[in-house]
Amino acid sequence: MSHALPQEAKPAADVARERGRGAHKGQQTRAAILDAALSLASQMGIEGLSIGALAEVTGMSKSGVFAHFGSREELQISVIREYHERFEEEVFVPAIRQPRGLPRLRALFENWVAKVATEIDSGCIYISGAVEFDDRPGPVRDALAGMVVTWHGSLVRAIRMAMAMGHLRPDTDPMQMQFEIHGLILALHHDARFLRSVGAVDRARTAFERLIQHYTLGTAVAPSGQASPSGVAAAGSAKAPLAPV
């Protein structure tokens, strides 16, 4: 009886390449699933996400989707993290390329407004998720709240830097100013998405400029980064002590 000779073992380099290709394909599949999940969450909410619904949308098996996330809860948290990463790329990263102080704070707000404007039909997961999970404790709520708190912290640091640069009054309360800026975004989202108000974006920008004028007493730094002259004495003309950023 003849016996087949044992196959030669593959070189370690070939095995590593195959594993690398497999891992890359797995990452691509996971990214595609997350992209579909974000789209689904914008229509049905985070609570509307499920392994089954996502399998149907992507044309995958439930076991295939499950293999990438393990549970519905992990899927929901992954979607929140993905949204946060995209939010950072679209809103935060371009803004930090602007000069420190008021120009950067303006850019943060303007980029935020632009993102809300593009989400009129889909909705902001930060805002819609807050409505879904405001009274539902658990890991999903914790993940969502953590992302929002992180973003608010970035705004507070930008405000403190504007104070340190002398662009805002030294008696500015950073937490209060951040609260008011966030309030403008919530009003914009409500009027643009729910009421379909055509002028909501312009009203948000106008309100922001009034807010800036309040905290600078007429010595606001213009969007170009140049100080706007004013006959009003500047209460914030002297630099405040450098705040941690």
Rank of each mutant, 00 (worst) to 15 (best):
H84L: 08
M165A: 04
R196E: 10
R141T: 11
R205S: 02
A200M: 07
A95H: 04
A13C: 10
D191T: 15
A117Y: 04
G225N: 02
I127H: 12
A164V: 01
M44H: 12
S228H: 05
S61N: 10
F109V: 02
A114L: 05
R106S: 00
F69E: 10
L144G: 13
D191Q: 13
T150R: 11
E8L: 15
D134S: 15
R30M: 08
V221C: 05
E209D: 09
S50N: 14
R141P: 05
S122K: 09
Q76I: 15
P241E: 12
P137E: 03
A238G: 07
P229H: 14
E119M: 11
G48D: 07
M1Y: 03
K115F: 02
M175A: 15
A220Q: 10
L188T: 01
M163R: 12
G231C: 04
E85T: 15
G225T: 01
E47W: 05
P94F: 02
C124D: 12
E8S: 12
E74P: 07
Y83K: 06
A164G: 14
S78R: 11
R196Q: 12
F66S: 14
V65M: 11
E56Y: 07
G64N: 04
S2N: 08
S42H: 13
L195Y: 08
L242K: 13
E88N: 04
K10D: 09
G199W: 01
I77M: 15
A36R: 12
T216R: 01
V245D: 08
D121E: 15
Y215L: 09
P170N: 08
G153H: 06
G123D: 09
Q176W: 09
R17C: 04
F208V: 07
P11H: 10
A243T: 06
V79C: 01
E209I: 00
H24C: 10
I181N: 08
I96N: 05
S39Q: 07
S197W: 08
P11A: 06
V149S: 08
I125N: 01
E89K: 14
A12L: 12
Y126G: 03
A158L: 11
E88M: 05
D134A: 11
V131P: 00
L242A: 13
S224H: 05
R141H: 07
P11R: 09
S2C: 07
L108G: 00
F133R: 09
V65Y: 12
